[in-house]
């Protein structure tokens, strides 16, 4: 029963995040698009660390890669690196305040973008790498709102 109550909000939030990441932004704004998928995965890993792990993050990343038609495995790798770090710090993180979490998200977003940029360079997809860090700023700013919203919808079973 408990797992069922998790499934619905999880699927719904991921679907919403996917839709939002398809919003057509152009004219420079596209670089400011927050890494919503990463936010969602980090949120779920923080609130349900016992039930969700690196595999979950990896699958989310792979689905994202498949649907957006990017380099297959790119976001899967970036997300699983983030998930690995979260798992490394373990249960301690759960008791942090929202502001501590915000700092954590900033670090994770930087790491995430570094992995993405690194893979882009590796496969020879040059582009404007510095612009990629705009997304880190917007992701950090969006996190408090995002986390509050999800908290409002979903009460962890603890």
């Amino acid at each position: 029963m408990a797992s069922q109550s998790l499934f619905r909000p999880l699927a719904l939030s991921l679907l919403l995040v996917l839709v939002l990441s398809f919003l057509p932004l152009r004219g420079g704004v596209e670089y400011w698009r927050p890494l919503l998928l990463m936010l969602a995965v980090v949120y779920w890993l923080l609130t349900e660390p016992d039930r969700l792990g690196i595999g979950f993050a990896w699958c989310c990343g792979l689905v994202f890669d498949l649907i957006t038609g990017g380099i297959l495995g790119q976001h899967a790798l970036a997300l699983s690196v983030c998930a690995y770090l979260l798992e490394l710090f373990g249960q301690r993180l759960q008791h942090f305040s929202l502001w501590h979490h915000t700092i954590l998200v900033a670090l994770l977003a930087t790491l995430y973008q570094l992995v993405v940029i690194y893979i882009n360079l590796l496969v020879g997809r040059e582009g404007q790498s510095w612009f990629m860090f705009y997304a880190v700023v917007s992701t950090t700013l969006v996190w408090p709102i995002f986390a509050r919203l999800l908290n409002w919808f979903y009460q962890p079973s603890r």
């Binding site: 690196i54 595999g55 990896w58 990343g61 792979l62 380099i71 297959l72 495995g73 790119q74 899967a76 790798l77 699983s80 690196v81 893979i119 590796l122 496969v123």
Partner: peptide
């Protein structure tokens, strides 16, 4: 394992 799979996919 997952990291390697991702790298292989890439």
């Amino acid at each position: 394992l997952l990291g390697l799979t991702a790298l292989i996919l890439i």
